[in-house]
Design a protein around this nucleic acid. Structure first.
Lengths: 191, 191
DNA sequence: GTCTATATGTAGATAGAC
DNA sequence: GTCTATCTACATATAGAC
């Protein structure tokens, strides 16, 4: 693997594990097996490297979500499939967790990948909610955009509560509750 | 104000603004107007001071939430009142944001205040959901414990998405969606 | 209780040789 | 492209005088 590539992957792993403030250039270099000079040759320091890492992580999450959104099943089933998909709950969201890093949200170019991913997620989910309404699967009285925001928040907040509890249980409970609220009126349940 | 007190308040403010990894003893001391020696006289370093600060912040949030939970109105109205209460959305949750700090969740005594606050919140909210069900305000088919977890997650996740967008709008939308999901079948709406 | 001095290591780079 | 040397500041304390 090329040097720049190893640096990006090393940074992605460290940002996920320790966040932006907790990730040092030295740690990035050591994990990548790359010298100081190489890192500063390929990137303009920690910030530029983090940007590349965050963009890649955001793209991965987006592609994975889109797979669920465009998969088989009714709109409601695809929403449920997204909520129920495998996640490394205790590690948190590789992108969302960086929103709690003040240096990240203070720098527009670093915040951009977060904003972009969540903005896209909200739009896609609201489209699915509207589709479910047209199909009669979801209540027509709901505001699709609000409910889309709620679904994104349930996932991100599930990580927060599960990491606090050092257990995946709160995340799973939050998702279960969301599915009940979305679909409790119609047998059989969403999943 | 006493020295120990000033140190705790200084630490609370810094943990909220910058997180645990981003908060240095030096910054704590300067903001408190206290010397190095004093800090280490009153506390066993950064970790002990953070523990005191986190316990106080968690207690404040708990008391404030309990005010909403025991206030006037139906159970559903009290849930809505809690969700709609004033929040400094872009600053995030003073307690929840620390769940993304790996040094915090790796140290049991630091994680304890988080786990304790969210565990309590889930219990109290599930009690309110059950009360609303008995009163016929909320659907009897819901699992109160799951829905309690969902409500906590919506708030914590709302912070994540709003900080990413640098706007309170996603938080407000997520709350609106949650209220619709909880109460859309019954006119008038919850709030 | 508070102060200053001191200590070891890291943060986050830049410079210039190879 | 990569390496080593170097730099200033900060992180996180401990020691001991006052």
């Amino acid at each position: 693997m090329a040097t720049a590539e190893r640096l990006i992957e090393s940074t992605r792993a460290l940002l996920w594990e320790r966040g932006y403030a907790g990730t040092s250039p030295k740690a990035i270099q050591q994990r990548a097996g790359v010298g100081v000079g190489s890192m500063y040759h390929h990137f303009d320091g920690k910030s530029g490297l983090a940007l590349a890492a965050m963009e890649r992580s955001a793209r991965e999450l987006r592609e994975s979500a889109e797979d669920h959104f465009t998969g088989p099943g009714t709109a409601a089933e695809r929403i449920a499939g997204y909520l129920l998909r495998e996640r490394d709950v205790l590690s948190g969201c590789p992108v969302g967790r960086l929103s709690m890093d003040s240096e990240v949200v203070a720098e527009d170019r670093l915040r951009a990948p977060l904003d972009s991913l969540f903005g896209w997620l909200r739009i896609r989910l609201s489209e699915l909610v509207a589709e479910g309404q047209r199909a009669g699967e979801l209540d027509a009285g709901l505001d699709p955009r609000a409910v889309g925001a709620t679904i994104v928040a349930v996932v991100q907040g599930g990580y927060v509560v599960s990491r606090s509890a050092e257990s995946p249980e709160p995340f799973d409970a939050a998702v279960r509750g969301a599915l009940q609220l979305l679909g409790h009126r119609r047998p059989p349940p969403l999943r």
